[in-house]
Computed example of a mutant assay.
Amino acid sequence: MNLSHCKQRQKLAVDVEAVCRLIAAIQLPSGEIPWSRGDKTDPWDHVESAMGLTVGGFYAQARQAYLWSRSMQRTDGSWYAAYRTGSPSDRTRETNLSAYIAVGVFHFWRVTGDRAFLALMWDTVRRAIEFALSLQRPGGEIYWAISPLGKVDPMALLTGCSSIYMSLRCALAIADELGHRQPGWKAAYTRLGHAIRHRPYAFNMTKSRFSMDWFYPVLCGAVTGADAHGRIQRQWKKFVVKGLGVRCVSDQPWVTIAETSELVLTLTAMGEREKAQIVFNWLTDHVFTDGSFWCGFTFPDMTRWPEEKIAWTNAVVLMAADALFDLTPAARLFSQDGWNGR
């Protein structure tokens, strides 16, 4: 770690090493990263945890996490929605959970420059994206899941589809780097972006109470410019508790560290770095004695809840710190300012 990065970390009021040690301690020998010790693993949060390890320089552990994903992928390109020590505990196959591997693999390559690993993971990424796109509708939206009984659930989620949009963005960048033309993916990406921007009625499972539905269309890069600024401003008071952070659900007095960190990522993606810094500073007091972050807390009583130390919550804090302080070459991963995957 060079001196400039060390100085940046001193400004963060975040113990990067301690946070990564927590995630690494939760990780199983197989590479699987549960939510917390003894808890379930889902494919999306597993990847998010690996991204946090990558930000902190724990490359071997992150690589092992991606290799676990590679080994657990089903023949149709999907993963089950949840596992416990490698055994499926929820056999639902969700499109956004599966597609997110593209974001993690691209992030790892941007940080490490390991092109051989990028090539090794290409088929895993390709099959995951093909699985997600197999449930895309002509209007662009993507159904969220196939049930354990093998039935397609005809529901499209705005947050889930926004996550898939970011996954496609990264998958296309990987394909470009490796010389694999994917015109079908580009067309699907365009249709999905159009649906997110212009067809809100297509997302027929209402989640407007959840803050992720508010900022994910901006975070993923589908909504940009004046539209992005307007979207964030309109619902700021609905979700943001000044001095504390972001509510998970608008009508509940529960602030979560993950949603607050993701808002920081969203604001930096929009170029609102000063506002992002203010929101990030609200997080820094909510830590355990080992330097890792709480999952969330209720207010005004400021009761920590839940008590578990959550791997993916801590990972997204590191990603927010990276976006603010340029800790790695992937700091601009979510940037809307001329992002071209390079």
Rank of each mutant, 00 (worst) to 15 (best):
D301F: 07
L178P: 08
Y201Q: 15
W294A: 09
G225M: 04
G271W: 10
E307A: 09
W254Q: 07
S261P: 05
W254L: 14
A226L: 12
Y189D: 01
G291F: 01
T284G: 05
E274D: 15
A202C: 06
H180R: 09
W294D: 03
K237Q: 13
Q182N: 08
A269R: 04
A187Q: 09
T224Y: 04
E177V: 08
P200T: 07
C220H: 13
S211G: 11
H198T: 13
T224I: 00
F215T: 08
T289N: 14
K238C: 02
K186A: 04
V241I: 15
V246G: 01
Q252E: 03
W214A: 12
R273D: 00
N204L: 04
C248Q: 14
E272Y: 12
S261L: 09
V218K: 00
D227A: 11
Y216H: 12
V240W: 00
Q277F: 13
W282A: 10
K242D: 15
R247D: 01
W282Q: 07
R304N: 02
K207R: 00
F239P: 03
L244A: 09
Q182P: 05
C220Q: 04
R234K: 14
L192N: 05
M205E: 14
E177N: 01
S292M: 04
F297L: 04
F215R: 03
N281Y: 08
P217Q: 11
M270K: 12
F293M: 05
D290N: 07
W282Y: 13
